[in-house]
Design a protein around this nucleic acid. Sequence first.
DNA 1: CGGGGATTGGAGAGCGCTTTCCGAGTGTTA
DNA 2: TAACACTCGGAAAGCGCTCTCCAATCCCCG
Lengths: 344, 344
Amino acid sequence: MRTERLPTLEDVARIAGVSRATVSRVINGIRNVDPQLHEVVWDAVGRTGYVPNRLARSLVTRRTGTVALVVSDSEAHDDDPFMGRFFADPYFGRVVGGLMSVLREKGVQLALQIVGSDDQRRRLVGDLRNGQADGAIVLSLPPIDPLPRMLTEGSVPAVLIGRPSEPVPIDYVDLANDTGATLAAEHLLARGCQRIAMISGPADVPASSDRIAGFRRSMARRGHGWVPTETGNFTRDSGETAMRALLAGNPELDGVFVANDLMALGALAALREAGRRVPEDVAVVGFDDSSAAVAASPALTTVRHPLEDMAAEAARLLLARIEDPAMRVSSVIYEPALIERDSA
Amino acid sequence: MRTERLPTLEDVARIAGVSRATVSRVINGIRNVDPQLHEVVWDAVGRTGYVPNRLARSLVTRRTGTVALVVSDSEAHDDDPFMGRFFADPYFGRVVGGLMSVLREKGVQLALQIVGSDDQRRRLVGDLRNGQADGAIVLSLPPIDPLPRMLTEGSVPAVLIGRPSEPVPIDYVDLANDTGATLAAEHLLARGCQRIAMISGPADVPASSDRIAGFRRSMARRGHGWVPTETGNFTRDSGETAMRALLAGNPELDGVFVANDLMALGALAALREAGRRVPEDVAVVGFDDSSAAVAASPALTTVRHPLEDMAAEAARLLLARIEDPAMRVSSVIYEPALIERDSA
DNA sequence: CGGGGATTGGAGAGCGCTTTCCGAGTGTTA
DNA sequence: TAACACTCGGAAAGCGCTCTCCAATCCCCG
């Protein structure tokens, strides 16, 4: 590869017969530059094929036009298949899609960052403070995560998707998970289900515990003080396993709320295997309204989680905070809705 | 937000009582520095909480430690829902997961770039040449895409996932799509299917046309010179529509090869709706072995597309090319395998 | 026709880092 | 002890850009 040097501002300036400063002004549209010169400069830019060097520009402006999408994972179990699962999960894609829908038109780039250890988190915050990116959208996976606090302490503009596990003055967007669970409970009850069980996610992550709490509370209010529950980890297989366990312990069950669609898919398989018809014998309500819900058969009745919208809102919030770091800390909570299909 | 200036190399040097150059050497582990000084410097780094500024470093080293994941789309239909679909598709996540599995341990970042117009492509190539990233992994969606050629002409290290639509001297990884289609054909034939149809993807994208060609060729060799075909666009809904059309024109059909799992899901729905049992009445073979395949009911017999592995290999290839730009252009073709499940 | 204000272009000082080039210090050999 | 080869740290020149000064030019009005 020839190291043919690329044209720089300097080159353009020489060709246009003006100073670097002038070219810079023209390119950035600053101040009134004599229209004649203006044209001469653009002409030179065209002839040289000049492209501004973003790195150099960022170094002085302290702006990169990039935001980081940080996935904060718990300690990596090394050759851990987890991240693979995470990326393949529709969750990740939906978030990226939502973010890009607003970032793209603003010409802002997205840089992906995975941190799995506190050391990596420290390094990340350091880089961010150094202006590696203008801000961060954070997807926090571990039950308790020091990252949000580190970010605020480093005064790095950041927005979480999902509420922080411990109270931290940081912007976030979240779903009213408890309301969603309530919707599911009421639907199951309204259908006439009598023996209702639940397949939950890990009890220690906020989104999951909110769903558990919301579901239990609603059921208790309607006289169901005890809800048989099995815990999964949001994967399809764990849903299948949980459903089998539930069936073994509660053969007479006629309704189940599954804390996400992927697990519901597994549950459906286990039910089919056990010869139960859905929804006739057992009604199933999922959560997320991911693409899996409509792919399932029967199509899943599920709680809609407007993840794309939430991610888009997170992006907007982040952009606003970057613009005005003194902005009041705010959070946006989305209301879920029940999507009725065939499984309940 | 206080603009408390972050410690720089200069500060560390002052505290350690040495010159900037020395600190730089210590930090980058260059040359033998007196072990004593070495320690003094690290101590100063620790005390100040110094973090090197990657931007500044990149500006001089011409290395960013970042590779771009470029999604080259056709002209955006503006408020086009397409990108949303694309990100939500398991395809995107699987690629990201595969890439990260390699990049992560090398400490290389991934920056996401979407280009929808030739203008954006030009700008992208310019930025890349300017060292915005060390190289690019390209996901090319349009039937004919000038990007690969632009990249090679700009001598930007790049690797395509999927072969280029027109011959360009560029590294790529691809799947032997035709072989995959052959696998599907033989399986259907071996099952004893007599009237076999196909739901293909858009005829103008390479991956899709290879599947069509491979399938037709294999069928022809076995005496089936004519294969009823409907074209979809790789979405679930298009698969459903295509299946209906196929059924309408060929009510007696007993086997169908669907060019990806998502469309197969739709086909399954259409078959169910038409009262056909799968696989008893109609055998269905999908393509990709995405998570949708196992989620489907009946679980899809499908052609495995090792996308994660391919993406990982693409990342390795890219890293190698960045290291040695003169490296011979190479391509890696993966062999698909038939995964037998319940639908055929 | 001269002076004040407004407008415009240029010089140059950085942004934070790497790296070449040197000179000074150390050890080795004849 | 002198000559030589090394080793090691520091000074300084950039990487490509922005932006603050400041000087030059222009216009308008008295």
